[in-house]
């Protein structure tokens, strides 16, 4: 099964739409509850990252018998130092985003903790691609 979503940068009303839909689908498929919780955390954080940092993004999700693969591609500023971005507490979020309670430097660490495989590629000034895999 495949699911696709579009995200507009800066539109916080959209954050959570993909994760909410995926949560429902995985529940219907009878996926283990603990596994769903992890996927939902990782996907939500990824959505928020696109909204908070990028101009726009696409989410492509493929659900197989044994796993869920998520590919998030955005057009945005990119990440100059991915290792630094993965550090707990490091954030480049704007003041407005921080005031909303986001941008505490916990998003990428949350994604790392809640995925079985994570790959981040970025071209500064162009785009970032996040690939996540969770096994059921």
């Amino acid at each position: 099964m495949e699911l696709d979503f579009s995200i507009e940068g800066g539109d916080f009303t959209q954050a959570g739409q993909a994760s909410s839909r995926v949560k429902k689908v995985l529940k219907q498929l009878g996926v283990d509850a603990k596994c769903i919780k992890s996927i939902v955390i990782a996907l939500y954080e990824a959505e928020v990252n696109v909204v908070a940092h990028a101009y726009k993004g696409q989410i492509h999700i493929q659900i197989d018998k044994d796993k869920i693969q998520t590919l998030i591609t955005d057009e945005g500023p990119g990440i100059p130092d991915i290792a630094m971005a993965m550090t707990e507490g490091f954030s480049t979020a704007s003041k407005k985003v921080r005031e909303m309670g986001f941008g505490a430097g916990m998003g990428l660490p949350n994604i790392k903790k809640n995925t079985d495989e994570l790959k981040i590629d970025s071209v500064v000034g162009q785009s970032t691609t996040v690939s996540m895999v969770n096994y059921f």
Binding site: I41, M100, F102, A104, M106, N110, K113
Partner: peptide, 9 residues
Amino acid sequence: SDLLSDVMG
């Protein structure tokens, strides 16, 4: 908590 990622995680 007032940090959304903290609550999420």
